[in-house]
Simulated assay, not measured.
Amino acid sequence: MIMLKAALKLVQTDNGLWRTVLDYEYSYEEVSASCGIAAAMINNDNPLHTRYVQKALEGILKNISKDGRVLNVSGGTAVMKDRDGYCTITKEWIQGWGQGLTLAFLSDVIELE
């Protein structure tokens, strides 16, 4: 688990998010996965994760509309034949799991304070 978290830190984008295909630079940044990853880092209670969580928070907040909708959440995915298949999944509609993961992450952030 420690190696996985270290690897995730390496593929966090400059915007603080993680891509739908983590190690594929042409894949889009995906907000719900970013919320899940950042929440896991918070719940691990490791101060070494703080800067990655803060960077994620900034990126996630930029993807919440003024009326509270979480944007840039991937539509549902099945197992694809290749990584390009994941890159074609739309992120145009509001997805319930994106709203829920964002709320879970933000509630963890509030608990920290």
Rank of each mutant, 00 (worst) to 15 (best):
V53E: 12
L57E: 13
D67P: 03
I94C: 06
A33K: 03
M80H: 14
D67I: 14
G68E: 05
I89M: 09
A56D: 02
G75A: 09
I37V: 14
G59L: 01
I60R: 08
G76I: 01
K55L: 08
C35H: 06
N46C: 15
I89R: 13
D84E: 07
G68T: 02
S65G: 04
Y86R: 04
A39C: 09
M41L: 15
I64L: 02
E58S: 14
A38R: 03
E92M: 02
K91H: 13
V70A: 05
R51K: 14
S34W: 08
D84Y: 11
C87V: 01
I37Y: 05
G36Q: 14
P47S: 12
D84N: 07
I60Q: 01
I64T: 10
G76S: 10
I89K: 13
Q54M: 12
T88K: 15
G85M: 06
L61M: 15
A40T: 12
T50Q: 15
G36A: 14
Q54A: 15
Y52K: 04
K55G: 07
M41S: 12
G76R: 03
W93L: 05
T50K: 15
D45P: 00
T77C: 12
K81H: 08
P47W: 03
M41W: 13
N46H: 13
T90Y: 10
V70Q: 05
R69G: 00
V79P: 07
N72G: 07
M41V: 02
T77Q: 04
K66Q: 14
L57K: 15
A33H: 02
N44Y: 08
E92W: 02
T88E: 13
N63F: 09
K66Y: 15
N43P: 11
K55N: 03
T50V: 14
K91L: 06
T90Q: 10
V53Q: 05
D84G: 01
V53A: 09
C87I: 00
G75V: 10
Q54R: 14
V79C: 05
S34N: 06
R69A: 07
G68K: 00
C87G: 08
V70K: 08
L71P: 06
A33V: 14
N63C: 02
Y86F: 12
N72P: 06
C35Y: 02
P47H: 11
R69I: 15
A56Q: 01
D67G: 07
S34Q: 10
I94A: 04
S74F: 10
N72D: 06
K81G: 11
K66V: 15
D67C: 08
I94E: 06
K55F: 00
G59W: 06
E58Y: 11
Q54C: 02
G75C: 04
L48G: 09
Q54F: 06
T77E: 07
A40L: 06
D84R: 11
K81T: 08
I94S: 02
K81N: 12
T77G: 12
A38Q: 03
R83M: 08
G36R: 13
Y86T: 08
G36I: 13
I42L: 11
I60T: 01
I37D: 09
Y86D: 06
Q54D: 15
L48S: 03
I64Y: 05
A40H: 04
G68W: 05
R69Q: 15
A33S: 15
I60L: 02
V53L: 08
S74E: 07
W93V: 00
I42Q: 05
V70E: 09
I42A: 13
E92C: 05
A39K: 13
I42K: 00
I89E: 14
I42P: 12
L71T: 02
R69P: 02
A78H: 12
R83H: 08
